[in-house]
Design a protein around this nucleic acid. Sequence first.
DNA 1: CGAGTTTTTGAAGGACATCAACGTCTGTGG
DNA 2: CCACAGACGTTGATGTCCTTCAAAAACTCG
Lengths: 227, 227
Amino acid sequence: MQTFNAIHAHRTPAAFAMRGAANLPPLCEPAISSSRRTFERGEEIFAEGEACNVFYKVISGTVRTGKLLSDGRRQIDAFHFAGDVFGLEGGALHRFTAEAVDKVTVAVFRRGSAGSLVKADPVFGEQLMTAMLSNLDRAHDHMVLLGRKTALEKMASFLMDVADRHADVERAELAMQRTDIADHLGLTIETVSRTLTQMVKDGLIRLANAGRTVILSDKAALRLLCA
Amino acid sequence: MQTFNAIHAHRTPAAFAMRGAANLPPLCEPAISSSRRTFERGEEIFAEGEACNVFYKVISGTVRTGKLLSDGRRQIDAFHFAGDVFGLEGGALHRFTAEAVDKVTVAVFRRGSAGSLVKADPVFGEQLMTAMLSNLDRAHDHMVLLGRKTALEKMASFLMDVADRHADVERAELAMQRTDIADHLGLTIETVSRTLTQMVKDGLIRLANAGRTVILSDKAALRLLCA
DNA sequence: CGAGTTTTTGAAGGACATCAACGTCTGTGG
DNA sequence: CCACAGACGTTGATGTCCTTCAAAAACTCG
C-alpha cells in the first residue's frame, strides 16, 4: 500500500472541535490510561474476531468500521471522524473490523471487562454511554437509509451527513474512495458514480479535486432528497 | 384497532428467561424506580419526537421500534422480545417510535438526563451499558442484512434470529405480521410472502398456524443462507 | 355466515447490478 | 520534467431481482 498525502489539509482543528458526540462535551481523558497511535491509509486498526481490550477515539483522519460476508460482500456501518468514539463492544471479541481510510491518529483507551470502567470512573463512563448512544442513533438513521431510500436519496443523505459532521455548510470532503461509499450505502461503485454525475447534471452539486470534494450547490433540494 | 388474542401462549417463562442481553445476567431492578405497564396490540408505546424520560424492558410480548419517512415509508430497526431493553436514547427526545406488536407488558424505568443514572447506580448503569451494546451489535448485523443480503438471505437470517432469540431450535413464532417483517427487512410484503413460499417449495421451512409459525425443516441450509 | 383484514399469487415494469471498456489521476523512474 | 504503470473513477449496454399494480384466496372475528 503506497503512501498517500492527506488531501484534507484544510480541515481545520476548529472544525474538528465541533464534532464531539452529538452536542455534548467532548470525551475527555479518563482516569483510565490512554495513549496515542497512528495508522497509515488502508491499515487495519482491529479485525473482526480479535480480542477487544481497548477502544478508540479519533483524533484526526477518517476511520471506517464494517463487516465482511463470507463471499466478500462488505458493509461499512460507519465512518468515524475526529471526536468520534469507535470500537466499543459488548463481548470480548470484536464483531467488526476497523481500518484507516487515510492517515489516522487515535487515542487508545483500555477497558476492563464489559463496562467495568463505568464503575472505575463514573464520569468517564457517562461520557462513554453518551458516545455509544450517539453511535446507536446514527445506526438507526443508517438502517432507514439502507432499507428504504433510493440511490439518489442515499447519496444526498450521505453528502449532507458528511458536510454536517465536518461542520462545513457548503461542501463535503470525501476522504474515502467510491468503493467505501458504495459499501456504506449498500450500492455498487457504478451506481455511486452515476448518481453523482446525475446530481451534477441536475445542478445539485459540483465536483472538484478529482471527485474528492463535493460542493453542495443546492442544499435545499438536497435536504428534500434526504426524505 | 381490534383486540387480538396472543398467539404465543406457548412461549414459556423458561424460554423468556434465556433471552437477557447476550449471555449476561438479566437487567435486575435498579435503585431507580420502576413500574409496569401493559399495551394492547398496535398501541403506541412512545413516538418519535416525544420527550424521553423513561426507557423500557420487555416483560412479555413483542415490541417493534422504527422510523417513518415523510412519505410513509417505514423502517423497523428491531423487534424486542422479553428481556430486551429499548427506548434508551442519547438526546432528550425519542428519535424513533415504539409500538406493541401483540399484547405487551413492559417494565418502565425513569432516567434523569442523559446517562446520569450511571452515577446514581453504577451497577445498574453497567447492566444498562451492556444492554445498549447488545442493541448496537444487533444494529450492526442488521445493517449488513439491509445493505448486502438478497431477499432469500434476509428471510433466512430473520427466521434464524427469531428462533434463536426465542431459544427455540426448530421453529420461529412470528408475532408480527408480514408488513412488519417487510419493513424490518427492507422488502415489500409481496416479496416476503413469495420468499416464504419459495422456501417451502425448496423444503427449507414449513408453515403452520396460518403462516404465523415457521418450522425450520432444514436448518443447515438456512444457516448457509445467512451468509 | 359475512365483512374486513391479511396473505398469497400473477403479470408487468423499473431501479439497480453486472459485465465491459474507456478515461483520469497519482506517484515513480527514466 | 515528462512518460509510464497501476489504481481509481466514469460511462455504456444489458440483465435481473425486486417492486408495483392488480386480483383472488385465506383468515379473523363479530
